[in-house]
Design a protein around this nucleic acid. Structure first.
Lengths: 224, 224
DNA sequence: TATAATTTTTAGGTTAGTCTAAATTTTTTA
DNA sequence: TAAAAAATTTAGACTAACCTAAAAATTATA
């Protein structure tokens, strides 16, 4: 009635769909059982079990020993969960003043609240935001997400200046590290010097402060 | 870490605690297995199972064949869930423009989101409301709820005028019926005539319209 | 106060989601 | 390309939360 799809998914099923969706982006198409086990913090045997169930429900295409990919319906559901997650993150950050390092964990719970009306009203209340506090695009009500073009800071050449538009790692530890370095969404970043040995870089932020950034961190900073 | 109590409760356990709390108010002290089975839409056997578990966790005092009552810790947890439920109801009604007949069902899910910080920030965002959209008092962060003095409209004598302060029934059907009759929280209600046969009453609302109210409805309207 | 009716508990079973250990399939490598 | 290594699945078990049916305890009644 309220959900659009006939059968409700459990929290766990929704989490698997979401995880498969994100892994499909990185690994292109077929997602392995082991990759899923690692991402969901379970064992491969448990994943195998769940894949059978999701397959019976028509949410994934599952070929034994080959791997898994989302069906159209599975992808639609995954994107709706991601939509909810990101809208709630905007709510937490903008309305309740949570830091961008805090919103992810809470949104992991809120994303499973089942009410289409709630999502649409929340969207309106927030002014139809396009991006969440980490710069990730928010899918629309039909599960469409703008294909987002970006580069990693680690790919920018010496001397070039870019704008920071997102992060590809959402852990509190990482985000708090960025806070300490003075890096935030929308800031201007000039790559002053790239260390050839370890690929660490020296950047100038907003023409004010110079900071040292490891390659590991630079790989997770999205810029344009 | 975030929860105050050492062991997290499941959604189901939280729902049992809440149900026991409300049944204790009506039935005074000892709540029976059958009453719980009816309220939770399960069978008595399932309730027995759960009572053993809650008892082992120290959240209830359970005496076989006698019934059950909350321990101090159980009551504290119940009141924190009720606090969250009612705060979310205020959010849904005031910020997202949901009708008071819609908020209960959604808040049943939101009340289980686990984050103390979230509750306190939500409370602040809403301006520390005292009552939810149905006129029910909101417990404070320590689980204290103001003992609320009220009368039922069905107990008011002919000729008297009162203010509607709450409802003791939260179903959409009931609340939509009130909407149609023009009854809302804060309105002035004058009891013009009580029908001796079926105890139905004729009331004047806000000195404007006259409405007919059945005894069944009047019993669920709280006034001062 | 013995019997009947009601309430509650116990016994045994189911499902979702997890686990470990063993078996099987696929992939790698010598 | 056969053997070793790695990945995956199957088998069998566990827990939470439910169920039905039967047994036991309590309460009501004749």
């Amino acid at each position: 009635m309220t959900s659009g799809s006939l059968k409700m998914q459990t929290f766990t099923e929704e989490n698997y769909l979401k995880t498969i969706f994100f892994l499909s982006i990185d690994t292109d198409v077929w997602v392995s059982t082991n990759a899923l086990a690692e991402s969901t913090n379970t064992r491969a045997a448990s994943v195998s079990d769940m894949l059978k169930r999701l397959s019976e429900k028509g949410l994934i295409n599952y070929q034994k020993y080959r791997g898994v990919r989302l069906t159209d319906e599975g992808e639609r559901l995954a994107l709706l969960v991601i939509r909810k997650h990101r809208l709630w993150e905007v709510f937490l950050a903008e309305k309740l003043q949570f830091g961008w390092d805090e919103v992810h964990v809470i949104a992991e719970e809120l994303e499973h609240i089942r009410s289409e009306r709630l999502v649409e009203k929340l969207d309106a209340f927030l002014g139809y935001p396009q991006f969440d506090p980490h710069g990730d695009p928010i899918p629309d009500a039909d599960g469409q997400m703008p294909a987002f073009r970006y580069r990693k800071l680690s790919e920018i050449n010496e001397g070039n200046t870019v704008i920071m538009t997102g992060v590809s790692e959402h852990s509190s530890a990482f985000l708090q590290h960025l806070d300490k370095s003075g890096l935030m969404l929308g800031c201007q970043v000039k790559v002053q010097e790239i260390n050839r040995f370890d690929k660490s870089i020296n950047v100038l932020i907003d023409n004010r402060q110079t900071v040292f950034i490891s390659h590991e961190v630079a790989k997770n900073l999205l810029v344009k």
